[in-house]
């Protein structure tokens, strides 16, 4: 039997990473996750009718994150600039900052069109199945496969160009 606390505990990290991938901003991603849980809490009676609460939360996260971007007219290409972590906040990102190759890959991911970026994120980082990704992004499974193929090809070309010519 699933309850609110269990749902929140299970999906909070996934929602946060998803929001962070879209907004590129730690504070905004945190706000999004909090807003998602507040919405779910306020509609907890209706949640009984939701077949897949996790996918529902992912969709909410995506919509709220996109709203935040639109409201501020911000570009998310430079995720590194948006991350304002203090020295005391030791997170995997601080480790990642020290690794140029990983930082470069993150930057390339942020250059991807939204649907390709989110599809690759949900597949390669969250390990979600095609149908789960399709439901979360509100697209067809065929579109999921196309987006994933194009996203991976883009990253591969960037990696090979860097290896051959030293350019990103």
């Amino acid at each position: 039997m699933m309850n609110f606390e269990k749902l929140a505990t299970n999906v909070k990290d996934k929602l946060y990473r998803f929001a962070l991938r879209i907004t590129g901003d730690v504070a905004e991603a945190e706000d999004v996750v909090q807003e998602v849980f507040i919405k779910v809490w306020n509609k907890r009676d209706d949640m009984q009718e939701v077949n897949n609460p996790e996918a529902y939360c992912m969709t909410l996260t995506r919509n709220l994150s996109l709203d935040k971007i639109k409201s501020k007219h911000r570009q998310t290409a430079e995720i590194g600039e948006a991350l304002q972590l203090t020295d005391s906040e030791s997170t995997p990102y601080t480790t990642l900052e020290k690794n140029d190759a990983l930082t470069q890959i993150r930057k390339w991911m942020q250059e991807l069109p939204e649907k390709q970026r989110l599809t690759m994120h949900l597949r390669d980082i969250e390990g979600m199945a095609y149908d789960e990704i399709a439901e979360s992004l509100d697209i067809s499974m065929a579109q999921v496969k196309v987006n994933l193929h194009r996203a991976r090809q883009f990253i591969r070309e960037k990696m090979l160009a860097t290896e051959r010519f030293g350019i990103a």
């Binding site: 929140a8 505990t9 909070k12 990290d13 929602l15 946060y16 990473r17 962070l20 945190e30 996750v33 909090q34 849980f37 997170t91 995997p92 990102y93 480790t95 990642l96 690794n99 190759a101 990983l102 890959i105 993150r106 994120h121 390669d124 980082i125 969250e126 990253i155 990696m159």
Partner: peptide, 19 residues
């Protein structure tokens, strides 16, 4: 590095105190 990146990204977590 690509697969290392995926593993590092998976370790990003949301602080439960901020719920």
């Amino acid at each position: 590095p690509l697969f290392q990146f995926f593993e590092v990204e998976k370790d990003v977590v949301f602080d439960a105190d901020k719920l």
